[in-house]
């Protein structure tokens, strides 16, 4: 009797998870071309920016250590994550409305399960792209400096994934109320790349003492800065003051590890909850 009950429970779980798994696999199949393009782009940029300048120009010096090399090579990861997230996640919710596919899918599948499956599928592919970038850079790190790979490189990968989840949640939030996929892509790219930078600069200019902990842009600096051997623990080591003709400017080098992780998680949770609420109320 107990065995039957257990089997029934498992069957219920299986039936509940089946739409998510089906959508997940469908999303993987649907977006694989985008994945291939982004992976090729990621590897090409690693080779173009972190290999060829050293291989082709004899005068151009290699950084001193493997960690320094990784730090200089990781500058492009922010752009790749933002563009990738915008292209992979922009259509997660709004495409069901703009392309009217919701009329077919929503009556059959629970709409939350559909979105969860799509989100996880896109996230898996983007993790693949980021992993390809890190693997390519790691292989070049071994090529130039020998093994093993500096252990902080794995921390950097972990923080890059948290950043990816935060950015993807931000894009999903915009996808929940925007009308078309293209609009979502343009808006989120503008916000994450340009608006974010402008706001950060204004805040730093107006309130130089205030650390822009709210900013995804500022927190993303931890991805490369975690590779620094003596990670700053004191506040005064985390910024540099510049003065030019009585003009005072503060440059924030890195957030704290705990601070950045908390902000990434906050962005993820808040954006996904708000997206879910908007999605629930949105009519076809």
């Amino acid at each position: 009797m107990q065995l039957l009950e257990k089997n029934e429970k498992y069957e219920q779980y299986y039936l509940a998870a089946l739409p998510v798994v089906t959508t997940y696999i469908f999303e993987l199949k649907k977006q694989w071309k985008k994945f291939v393009i982004f992976t090729i782009m990621a590897i090409s940029f690693v080779i173009l920016l972190s290999h060829l300048p050293y291989a082709l120009i004899p005068d151009n010096p290699l950084p001193d250590t493997q960690a320094d090399y990784f730090q200089s090579g990781l500058n492009f990861i922010i752009l790749l994550t933002i563009f990738g997230a915008c292209f992979f996640f922009s259509g997660i919710i709004c495409s069901e409305y703009s392309e009217k596919t919701g009329f077919i899918t929503f009556p059959i599948i629970n709409k939350y399960k559909l979105v969860v499956g799509k989100y996880l599928g896109a996230l898996t592919l983007m993790i693949g792209v980021i992993a390809a970038f890190y693997i390519a850079l790691g292989v070049l790190g071994i090529y130039w400096y020998g093994g093993p790979i500096n252990y902080r490189y794995y921390y950097s990968f972990g923080i890059a994934l948290l950043y990816l989840i935060a950015v993807s949640s931000f894009v999903t939030f915009f996808s929940s109320f925007m009308k078309s996929v293209n609009m979502t892509i343009v808006t989120t790219i503008m916000l994450l790349l340009i608006a974010n930078m402008i706001i950060d600069s204004l805040v730093i200019l107006l309130y130089p003492e205030f650390e822009p902990i709210y900013s995804l842009n500022h927190n993303s600096q931890l991805i490369s800065y975690i590779l620094v051997e003596d990670f700053p623990t004191k506040l005064e080591d985390r910024y540099e003051d510049l003065e030019f003709r009585n003009f005072h400017r503060r440059i924030w080098l890195t957030p704290t590890i705990e601070g950045a992780i908390t902000i990434f998680l906050l962005y993820t949770v808040i954006c996904l909850i708000v997206a879910a609420i908007i999605f629930k109320r949105r009519q076809l």
Partner: peptide
């Protein structure tokens, strides 16, 4: 021991 050659000029 290890030596990393950074550049040649």
């Amino acid at each position: 021991s290890k030596i990393t050659i950074k550049n040649l000029a």
